[in-house]
Design a protein around this nucleic acid. Structure first.
Lengths: 138, 138
DNA sequence: GCAATAAATGCACTTCTGTTGCACTAGTTA
DNA sequence: TAACTAGTGCAACAGAAGTGCATTTATTGC
């Protein structure tokens, strides 16, 4: 049994061939990927299967969904022991306007946000847009 | 000439009947509205016209577009003298998970966000999700 | 005022992403 | 091995965004 298979079982997800492939793909990519990215990476992949696989991964906290403002849902592997839904674990995402890639800046936690009286904050989404490291040439 | 007509001309937008109606609708609503909201408010309205009107309004800085994570673009009137694209003017948006409405919290500016070396921030989008004043019953 | 021009609008159509239903296959358990 | 459950593939649909083109409305020059 490979490392990936073990990982998936730890998350209580049956390690099927497709899921292993998708997990591997996500692990290799350092950026957040859209469903269509995976689809075009594996010609054989069925959109529905990918869709449902990602849903499963999300439920089991293997990946977290990212809304980077492009209107397309993207996904990235959660860090080990990450609790995406807990406010303290929320990190910000950076979307490059040049290469169109979105990365998790896991080191950069979202600062405490104050909301007016009467409002109850449950979740925070923070996306910074601009030019990424690769594209800025630094 | 009405107040709204004057306003539109100030923004260098020709005040057509449709545009005046849409502007008025946006001004009355205190929340960010989606294209479909306006469409259902005016039965006669053509989706394409609304779409292009909002695009025009956006270009002329009459409204700003809001991405609240629902995947649907929403729009809200800019404040007088607002410079949406300038970082200092960026305010946060609150999306209520109960009533599904999105409001601009214009009083709440987005705190300065640090990004790693090599990254250049140009724009910041901050959406807080939770329960709004109306729904929390306070 | 009228013709020429430009802007705005309405209709039809396409594309893209997300989503669901259903049948089939593979894998697990008794 | 039979019965069951989870996973996959195909087809189809829904909703929003976007485009092309013809028509209407407004503006400008004569």
């Amino acid at each position: 049994m490979t490392e990936i298979e073990k990982t998936l079982e730890n998350y209580q997800v049956r390690p099927t061939a497709m899921r292993i492939l998708i997990y591997k793909y996500l692990a290799e990519k350092e950026i957040a990927v859209a469903l269509t990215d995976i689809e075009s990476a594996f010609a054989k992949a069925e959109r529905t299967t990918l869709y449902r696989t990602l849903k499963t991964f999300e439920e089991k906290k293997i990946v977290h969904q990212i809304d980077d403002g492009t209107g397309i849902s993207k996904y990235a592997l959660c860090e080990k022991g990450c609790n995406c839904e807990i406010e303290q674990d929320l990190h910000l995402h950076f979307h490059c306007n040049n290469c169109n890639e979105t990365v998790c800046l896991t080191e950069h936690k979202i600062p405490q946000i104050k909301v007016p009286d009467g409002y109850i904050a449950e979740d925070v989404n923070l996306v910074v847009k601009g030019i990424c490291e690769k594209c800025s040439g630094q």
